[in-house]
Design a protein around this nucleic acid. Structure first.
Length: 376
RNA sequence: GGGGAGAUACCAAAGUGGCCAACUGGGGCGGACUGUAACUCCGCUGACUUUCGUCUUCGUAGGUUCGAAUCCUGCUCUCCCCA
């Protein structure tokens, strides 16, 4: 088993642990910056390591398959070699695109036919070629090819969708048996618990997924339109069933508050585009609350971006300057905001880990959440 | 000196008798964004009003008309061309 549980809390389901990979250890709880096309948008690897303190980043099967394509990827020797990130990488399977590409795709038992958002060309994703592609990319953690069920799906659809995800999972495993890793290290497949907003389906999915000999388990299909309370309830239902000795990855979540609430309910890993995408659009997350840096009130605020911040950009630049850059659509603005937000997210999960080890997580969480919700 | 063009909201720029408080950009203000088709998208931007609506606007002063940013006349200003 690659995961070691180090601490649990007496008054919370929160856990601290370590996940071992061929490219280094991941200390949980952890936030994983999203690097869809092989880069965390606007952030250099040096900054990811030294300022953000990222331990693992994501890549995306769909995007990398379309560009640069697997021929280049394999010639490079995999994504680690290609982008120069020598720490752990996780790739999503393209399953989320099945959901987000909306009307330019068609779902069948075989897989998903979709049109490239780049040139409109037709392609097919299936459990088999998603695994093939993820072998070629060569991430340490790879994701099962699933259908990310929409949050407002009716029960019958959600059930069928879940069953399809389960059948696809068997095909994922079968394909990985056929095609060995390409770059001399092992890849861990994380299966995904679906079930939409229906507790009995979630429970059923969790039991089903727990039956596989995986290194970790993902919870998918949340934060896709349902209420936050519903999301928390689903996490509770699922984690009640999942084995303690495997890391639990809540896919695509979320706000700082979402993350703490999920950690409190026993989740270990997170990824989300929010710190980078929202950062580019002017949203700055801090311990004291959320700043919309485009607002006029920051026009002449020459204090640091975040006095409590852990990265150098927080102290190097002022809020007024960052506002100017974002409003002027200067690239540097997006970079500063991304580095700051990612550093904040990493601080948040690392501090949660520290509090868990100290058995003070619950009180700390209750105290900081009202602050995190503030609008500054 | 002669000839020509034009003055529209913060800026630029449509509109040339009723569908005009006035297209569209930009700027300004606010909001959204959760396994990234995203340096993107959505509102508002004359005044008062929650809405309905009311009032004051298209250089300026008059006029024609049931009705004018749009037609006519005077005035002021700007720009271009030729001397």
């Amino acid at each position: 088993m690659k995961f070691t549980l180090e601490n649990t809390c007496s008054n919370s389901e929160a856990r601290a642990g370590v996940f071992k990979t061929a490219h280094g250890d991941i200390e949980t709880p952890i936030f994983m910056p999203v690097g869809t096309a092989g880069s965390v948008k606007g952030v250099h690897i040096k900054e990811l390591k030294e300022d953000v303190k990222a331990q693992i980043i994501l890549g995306n099967t769909y995007h990398l398959y379309l560009r640069p394509g697997m021929e280049v990827m394999e010639a490079a020797g995999g994504l680690h070699k290609f982008n120069g990130w020598d720490k752990p990488i996780l790739t999503d399977s393209g399953g989320f695109q099945v959901f987000s590409l909306g009307d330019i795709r068609k779902l069948t038992e075989e897989g998903v036919k979709f049109q490239s958002h780049i040139d409109g060309s037709s392609h097919m994703f299936s459990p088999e070629n998603s695994m093939n592609i993820q072998r070629s990319i060569g991430a340490d953690i790879i994701m099962a090819f699933d259908e990310c069920t929409p949050g407002d799906a009716p029960y019958d659809y959600a059930k069928k969708s879940m069953d399809l995800t389960h059948r696809w999972l068997d095909r994922c495993y079968a394909q990985l048996e056929k095609v060995p890793p390409k770059y001399g290290f092992e890849q861990s497949l994380f299966p995904i618990v679906q079930g939409c907003v229906y507790p009995d389906l979630r429970k059923q999915a969790a039991k089903h997924i727990a039956g596989y000999n995986s290194d970790g388990i993902a919870i998918g299909g949340l934060a896709v339109g349902e209420k936050e309370e519903t999301m928390y309830e689903m996490i509770e239902v699922v984690n009640e069933v999942l084995p303690e000795d495997k890391p639990r990855y809540l896919m695509g979540v979320g706000t700082p508050v979402n993350i703490l609430e999920a950690i409190d309910r026993g989740v270990d890993m997170f990824d989300c585009v929010m710190p980078t995408r929202n950062g580019r659009n002017g949203m700055i997350f801090t311990q004291k609350g959320i700043i919309n840096i485009r607002n006029k009130k920051w026009e002449s605020d020459f204090t640091p971006v975040d006095p409590d911040g852990t990265s150098y950009v927080d102290h190097q630049y002022s809020r007024a300057y960052l506002r100017h850059l974002i409003i002027s659509k200067e690239m540097l603005g997006a970079q500063i905001a991304s580095i700051h937000n990612l550093a904040f997210y990493l601080w948040l999960t690392n501090e949660a880990r520290r509090q868990i080890k100290n058995n003070t997580f619950k009180a700390w969480k209750e105290a900081i959440i009202p602050q995190l919700k503030n609008r500054l």
